[in-house]
């Protein structure tokens, strides 16, 4: 399962990289969003072993739990990546309003007003 997840992560990273390298700003932002999905899956699979225990809520019956630490890290990361996406989107939107284009190549050298 870990191997499969990791390969999926790799595919997501490739796709994200390709998106980030493109010219349209919306693609770049989508790329970062995909990248954060990949990162979350990666952190998850780096734990003590996937599916190797119960849900990390303490009960009397459970013998072992899955690793809670990656989960806490990811929870923080999810919210932060939302904030990052929002900032990037708004930045792109605002730049588009000021410059009239969403093409990164055309943004180059536009003089500050």
């Amino acid at each position: 399962m870990e191997t499969l997840t990791t390969i999926l992560t790799g595919v997501l990273v490739s796709v994200a990289t390709y998106l980030i390298l493109s010219r349209s700003v919306l693609r770049v932002i989508l790329g970062t969003a995909v990248l954060s999905h990949a990162a979350h899956l990666l952190i998850m699979s780096m734990g003590r072993g996937l599916k190797s225990g119960e849900v990390p809520i303490l009960t009397d019956e459970a013998l072992s739990y899955v690793d809670p630490l990656p989960q806490a890290l990811i929870l923080t990361s999810i919210v932060i990546s939302f904030a990052v996406t929002a900032i990037l989107l708004v930045l792109a939107y605002r730049t588009y309003r000021e410059t009239g284009t969403d093409n990164l190549f055309e943004w180059r050298g536009i003089k500050d007003e």
Binding site: V79, F82, A83, A86, L89, V90, Y93
Partner: peptide, 13 residues
């Protein structure tokens, strides 16, 4: 914070 920020972001746009 979560409520405030999420709503602020969406409303601003």
């Amino acid at each position: 914070v979560v409520v405030g920020v999420v709503v602020t972001i969406i409303l601003s746009i």
